[in-house]
Structure formats: C-alpha cells, structure tokens
Design a binder for these strands. Structure first.
Length: 878
DNA sequence: ATAGGGTTAG
C-alpha cells in the first residue's frame, strides 16, 4: 500500500490514492508543497515558492505551505512501479515548468532515497518538453543559478544535460551568463560556469575568454579569474594572461594572488607563470619581490631534497632514488629556464651588481645566455652609465656572433648606441651604425632615434639633422618619438627657432618647408645660438642641400605631435611666456592635455621671465586639471621662488611645508639643503654655512646606503650618482694621478656639487696623511652658453672659498703646461666587477676628448692654503 | 600566445 501524505497548513490529510497526479486541485504544482523524504515533522514549512507563474497569481489561491511525503517505493511488482514512477516524473516535470526547481530536487531526492533501482527510468520518464519549457522560462526570467541547481540533479538521473540544450536554449544560457558578468555578479557567473563546465558545456562559447578575464581583472578578482581559467584547459597560458594583466594595471597584490592560486591549481612548476609574475613585479616597481620569487622557485626543491635525504639517510638506496627524482625534477621542471632568468635580469636591470650575480648563477647552472640576455646586460650598463662595461660586452658579443654562436639583432645595436649616446660619445655611436650596416642589420626608427639623440646629447644639431635625412632616405618612417628626438636635439643645442621651424614644416605637411631653409641663415645672428665653429669641419654636407630631401621625404609621412612634442617645444620657449601659452592653447585644440611635465616646464619659463606669481599660479591650477603636483612640480616652484626672489626664503619653505602636508616626500633634489643651496647664487650669507654641510651630508649618505641598494638608484642616477662617479673616478684615496675633474655637460648646481665633493675628498685625503701633490684641474668643455654659466658659477664658488682660480684657454701657455699632466682616463673602471677576462675590453675604451677644452686651474699651493685656513676655522669652532 | 631598445620635468 502506498500512501501519500499531504500536509496543508496545520491540517493533515491522508489520501489513499495512487492516482493523485490527476487530481490537480489537490496536487497543484503551481502551489508550493515542499517535498521531503525523510521526516515530515522536521521540515521547515515557511519557505515561500521561488517562482510563481504570473498568469496564475491572481486566479490561484495564495500558495500554502504543504509537505508531500513519498514513502519508499518498494513494490517488487514492476508494472505498477513504473506506472508510479511515471506519475512522479510527470509531476516533477510540471514542477520544473512552474519554476519550482527546489521542489523538483525534493522529488528526485525522494525517488533516489526510495531505493528504487531504476533511477535512470525516472530520468527517462521525465517530460523533457515540459522540463525544457521551464528551464527556458527560468533562464528568461533571470534565474540561471536556479536552473544550474536544477541541472545538478540530471547527471544522477542519467540525463545528458548538454543534449537537452538546442541552439536557442544555448543562446539563452549564453545571454544569461553575459548578463551575470555585466551586472557585476562575477562570483555567481563563475559558479554557474563551473557547473556548466561539469555538464560539458563549451565554456569558451559562453563568453569570449579574453573578455571574461578582462572583466575579472578590472574588478580585481584574481581568484575568480583563476577559477575561470581552470575551466579552459590548458589553463596555464590563461593564468599568465591574468598575472600579466594585473601587472599592467600595477596591481601587484592581485597579481600575486593570481600567481599563488594558479600555482595551487597546477601540478608541477610552470616557468611561464614564474617569468610572468617576475615581469609583473618589475612593472609594479617591486624588484625585490621578483628576487624572492626567483629564489623560492629556484631553491625550494633543493631544500625539500635535503629534507628527504635526512628522512631516508638510513637507507642508501632510498637516498639514491630520491636523488634520482630530484635530479629529474631539476632537469625537467625546476631549473629556471632562460625566460625566467631574462625576466629577472630585466626587472633588476638597474642593479648591475645583482644581475651580474644572476648571470653567473645562470652560467653555473649551465643555461646559456641568449641574445636577449646580452641585450639586457647592455641595457643594465646603459642604466648604470657604464659605457666601459657595455663596450666589453659588445666586444664579447661580436666574438660570439663571428663564430656563429649568436646573431646580433637590432636591439643589440640600438642599446649599445644608446650607451654611447648617454656618454656623449656620438662618434662611437655612429661607428656602431657602420658595424650594423656592414652586418646587414637594418636600423629601425628606434635605432635612428638613438643615433639622433647621441648627436643631441653632444649638442650637434647638424649631425642630428643629417641622420634624420639619412633615415628618410633609407626608407625608414619616423614616428612621433623620432620627430621629437630631432626637436630635442635642437633644443638641447639652444637652437630654439630651428626647432620651431622644423615643427611648423612637419605640421603643415611640408608647405612651410621653405621657411626652414631660408630661415637657417638667421640662426647665426641669434644670440642663443652657440658657436658651432668647432664642429663646422664635421658638417661636410651643407644643410641646404639636404633640406629639399627632407622636404620631399618628410611630407610623405604623417606627423602627429603628442604631449612630449609640445613639452620639448615648451622648453624651446626660453623666457617667452606668451609663446608658451600659445603652445598650450594649440595643444588643447588638438585634444592633447598638458601633463605635469608641461606644467613644470611652464613654471621654469615663468622663472626665467621673473614671474614668480605666474609659477605659483600654475602650481595651484595644476590640480584644476586633475593633475596632482608631484615632487618635481614643487621643486620647480620652490626653485623659481628662491632663485627669483632670493631675499624671501620664508615663502619657499612654506611651499616646502605644503608639499610635505600633501604627503609628497621630498627627494634629494628637493630638500631644505637644496633650498639653501639655490640661494647661494645671490646670497653669500649661506655659503659658508652650507658648503661643509653639503659635503658632509653627501659623503655620509653614500656611506650609509651603498651603491647596491637599488631603491636609491634613481637618486643615485641623479646628482649623487654623478658626484659619486666623479669622486670614485678621480679621487681614490691612494690616487697618485693628477686631480682632473670633468664637469662637462653638468648643470650649474651639479657642477658646484661635484666641485664641492672633490674639495671634501681632498680635505679627507689630506687629513689622513696623503699630501696634495697635484694641482686641481676642472674640465669645462667647449664654450657654450650654459657652460659659460657653469664656469662662472664654479669660479665664484672657488673664489668664495678663498681659492685662486685661473681659466685656461685652449692652446694658451697654461694649457700646454697642463696638458702633460692631466691626461687622466675618465673611463669608470674602478667599480667593475665584470672581469675583463670574461669580456675583454679590447683597446680599453679610449674616451676621446677633443683637445680644445676650457679648463679651470687651481694650484696645489692654493689648495694647501685653503686647507690650513679651513682646519684653522674648524679648530676654532670645536 | 611569452622578453629586449628610443623623447620630455628637478
């Protein structure tokens, strides 16, 4: 006897009928009985229906809470049983139709729990037409989660879920998934997709994987992204995409989460993921983390191995087995591959010492450096300003190239050109170009830009222009950066009008080209134009001859100025505030917005024009453009204030305080000391006080922090780097060479710093018992307008200290006297840990310097005099 | 779906 118990509200009626499914007034599936197999009493009756068909909501009585008890179906009589099952199935199908997915589950549970053998019979007996109608409706009404819950029962009933979904049903699923994703319910979306994946749904077809990952990354959901990626094997590539995308968005925390999550999901080590997270660390500026990840990855297995050895040391055989496995692991998986090494080196490229260590480690593991490794090494040399090392590596690579072990590529050449460009060795850069051409490697825009900037850094506009023409003739299309580089060359050489003429020519597509040509003569009369007499011999090609080329060629390529272009031009405005304002307007018309660099330059222009208020106004209005002033902006403003109105240091310090209030950390350039320092120029009062402070401070700082600390490398590359380099080069404590200080190319501030540092060293050497044996020579370089200012500044500084200074003109009597002694090599080889046996430097990188240089000369007698005077004042103080 | 090079501010 089979009973059906229906509890409606609190009243219980027992219907002794097996034909209940025809009596819809009692078993209306639109209403909400909750089915339970086990214990009717314990079931909560408060649950309202999840979906009520809207058509019935008015006509039907309000849903009552009821409970349907299905007793075990144990009748051995097959016929009636299948009959009974059929009615249950029919009923269950109707439940689906009316959106009552949970109740469907209850029925299935009942059937499963009833111990009937033919579970799949029940599945087969379901009315799929009706079921699918309910599922479609559920999908259309936005309850995909409910649908998925429903579907979870199907495999147990032997139903192939995927088979039920025809094209249009599949479209509904897709649409719903997309809706979940777009409405921000990512977690739900991933859960749904995980379930669908279990039903063998093609996950790739639901939503474009790259879109899904992009959304996860945008919403900062690393774990969900990884969970999603696991649905799309092979997942490891997608893991890397996720890590990389977080890296690109500078979200290292999420990148690391994704990395850890993906590591757990993977069996074994994925080198691709390791290198990607290392790259991400680099992008996010956390090179130290990249190192620890690398160490962890490289050595974890070794520690495990030691553990294993200890555990099994009683058995030699076990040890051998573990060792064998370990070696396998090491060979197959665990050894970082070349990509990991290259990424690690690239991320840490600013720390030459470190990457040299990595390089050696790589060699000891027997991993051969490839072209990229060498290119990264070259880049590191560039970043640390070690031309000498770069040259050594270059020689080595050439050797490897000649024996066919490597093939030097356009990156190699471009980087070495950059190394020479930075060192102002433009002629060496040109020589590399020749090497390159004879090796059959075609220079690209980057190479040409590097070449042009080599000339720019040396202040050689004509050579730069010539290279630009050469590039056009070679059929290489310049891009904005390339155009910018040439403009920068003009600005660097103070040929401001020329920069503007070029710009106008390009902008007008060549129609104003004649201006560039005819206007050239005017340059010579401009006071800002430095004398190029020294270089005139090397400008063998008259400029006018190439102008037509350029006119013809440059017009064929589109010129799209960008913000950097305008920044360079802003710099070319000198003190012309109106011109600068016009440029800013023009920028805006083109839809370009000035960035913090533009504003900093503009503040400098105000400074040159003596307009302090203007500069301060710009600083204030920066935030109106939603650009938060940075240290540099504040530094510029403060400097303008101090230098223009040197009487009033108070307001400069209030700016300084404001900056700190906004939690902008002052850097080495911007400090109370610098503020005093800038006021040197016009105010002798601070001079005496600060010279010692400066020198002490700098020497102390360099001792504290050490050069290998790469956090500070940015600073070191600034003033202190220059200073320390000069000091290291010229003033080793046991130096027996002459004291020659090269301050070519330095700004006034830098030059004074270097000279002060040198004097400090002289004092230290003297105090520790090294007598001064030589005169002090300060190399100024060819006379340009700036360098004349530098010369004056340094002369004034030395004189203020009570030193006697003589200017040496090239070719003069004093010059000839000095020349014999001051041939000191300026190549920086003191700190080299790159042994010359590894990279033979060949002919020891002669840094050729033109003979005709201006110098300042301080005799050793004068230095002596200064030292004793200084010591005297010190002893008075203490 | 994998790396590496060029311009601008103190």
């Amino acid at each position: 006897m089979r009973n059906l118990v229906i509890i409606t509200g609190s009243s219980t009626s027992i219907v002794a009928s097996s034909r209940y499914h025809h009596q819809h007034h009692l078993f209306n599936p639109k209403q909400s009985p909750i089915f339970s197999l086990s214990n009717p009493i314990s079931v909560s009756l408060s649950k309202p229906p999840s979906t009520t068909p809207p058509s019935c909501s008015s006509s039907c009585p309000p849903p009552s809470t009821s409970l349907l008890l299905i007793p075990p179906l144990l009748d051995p009589n097959g016929d009636s049983l299948s009959d009974e099952l059929g009615s249950y199935a029919e009923y269950a199908s109707k439940l689906v139709e009316y959106g009552r997915f949970e109740d469907f589950g209850m029925v299935v549970k009942s059937v499963l729990g009833s111990g009937v053998g033919g579970v799949s019979d029940f599945g087969r007996l379901l009315n799929f037409g009706i079921v699918m109608r309910g599922i479609r409706k559920g999908l259309r009404e936005g309850s995909i989660t409910g649908v998925v819950e429903l579907l979870r029962w199907f495999p147990q009933l032997g139903i192939d879920v995927l088979g039920l979904f025809d094209g249009s049903a599949m479209e509904l699923v897709k649409r719903e998934c997309l809706r979940l994703v777009n409405s921000g319910n990512l977690e739900e979306a991933v859960e749904v997709m995980e379930a669908l994946s279990g039903f063998q749904f093609p996950i790739r077809g639901l939503i474009k994987p790259s879109d899904m990952i992009r959304v996860c990354v945008d919403k900062r959901h690393p774990i969900l992204a990884v969970r999603y990626a696991c649905l799309l094997p092979p997942a490891d590539i997608l893991f890397c995409t996720i890590i990389r995308e977080f890296g690109k968005r500078r979200d290292l925390v999420s990148a690391l989460k994704a990395f850890e999550a993906s590591k757990r999901k993977m069996n074994g080590h994925n080198m691709y993921a390791y290198r990607t997270i290392i790259d991400a660390c680099g992008l996010c500026g956390d090179c130290f983390r990249s190192r620890s990840i690398f160490e962890l990855q490289a050595w974890n297995s070794k520690w495990d191995f030691v553990g294993y050895l200890n555990k099994y040391k009683h058995s030699a055989e076990c040890c051998r087995r573990w060792f064998g496995e370990f070696i396998d692991l090491l060979i197959q998986k665990v050894t970082p591959n070349i990509y990991v090494f290259n990424s690690l080196m690239n991320v840490n490229a600013h720390d030459l010492t470190y990457i040299m260590d990595v390089y050696k480690q790589m060699q000891s593991l027997g991993i051969e450096a490839d072209m990229t490794s060498y290119n990264i090494l070259l880049k590191a040399c560039c970043l640390s300003g070690r031309v000498d090392l770069a040259q050594g590596i270059y020689t080595e690579i050439r050797r490897l190239d000649s024996i066919g072990a490597l093939k030097m590529d356009v990156f190699t050449y471009s980087t070495i050109i950059k190394a020479f460009a930075d060192a102002k060795l433009w002629n060496m850069a040109i020589k590399i170009k020749e090497d390159m051409l004879s090796a059959g490697v075609k220079p690209n825009t980057v190479t040409w830009s590097a070449l042009i900037s080599a000339c720019a850094n040396a202040g050689l506009v004509d050579q730069a222009t010539q290279l630009f023409d050469e590039m056009l003739i070679a059929g290489c299309e310049p891009n904005s950066q390339c155009f910018n580089t040439l403009l920068h060359a003009c600005v660097e050489a103070c040929q401001y009008d020329r920069a503007f003429r070029l710009f106008n020519t390009w902008k007008s597509g060549g129609s104003a080209g004649a201006a560039e040509n005819s206007g050239h003569d005017r340059d010579a009369n401009l006071s800002v134009e430095p004398t190029e007499a020294d270089e005139s011999s090397s400008t063998s090609t008259p400029y006018c001859a190439t102008a037509s080329h350029q006119l013809r060629l440059a017009t064929s390529v589109p010129f799209r100025p960008c913000t950097a272009t305008y920044n360079i031009l802003l710099k070319a405005c000198g003190a012309d505030l109106f011109r600068a304002q016009a440029l800013i307007d023009e920028m805006r018309k083109l839809g370009l917005s000035p960035n913090h660099i533009s504003w900093s330059i503009l503040m400098n222009i105000c400074g040159r024009a003596g307009n302090v208020q203007g500069a301060l106004q710009i600083l204030k209005s920066m935030s109106h453009c939603r650009i938060r002033p940075d240290v540099i902006a504040y530094t510029t403003a403060i400097k303008v204030e101090v230098c223009v109105e040197n009487k009033n240091l108070g307001s400069a310090f209030s700016l300084f305080a404001e900056m700190k209030k906004f939690r902008i950390k002052p850097n080495l350039v911007c400090s109370t000391r610098s503020i005093y320092f800038w006021s040197y120029k016009a105010n002798d009062y601070y001079l005496k006080l600060l010279i010692e402070e400066w020198c002490e401070g700098i020497v102390q700082n360099s001792n504290q922090e050490g050069l290998s600390n790469s956090r500070n490398m940015a600073d070191i590359r600034g003033l202190r780097g220059l200073l320390l380099e000069r000091l290291a080069t010229h003033l080793q404590k046991n130096a027996s060479e002459s004291l020659a200080v090269d301050i070519q190319g330095l700004t006034e501030v830098e030059a004074r710093l270097v000279v002060l540092g040198v004097l400090r060293m002289i004092k230290e050497n003297h105090n520790s018992g090294h007598p001064i044996r030589d005169d002090l020579i300060i190399i100024l370089g060819v006379t340009k307008v700036e360098e004349c200012m530098v010369k004056n500044a340094v002369t004034k500084l030395l004189k203020d200290l009570g030193l006697e200074v003589t200017a040496i003109q090239p070719g003069g009597i004093a010059d000839r006297k000095i020349n014999g002694e001051s041939a000191a090599n300026t190549s920086l080889d003191s700190k080299s840990n790159f042994r010359s046996t590894e990279f033979p430097t060949g002919s020891s990188a002669p840094t050729r310097r033109p003979a005709s240089l201006q110098r300042l000369w301080v005799t050793k007698e004068s230095l002596h005099h200064w030292l004793y005077k200084k010591l005297g004042t010190n002893s008075n103080c203490t």
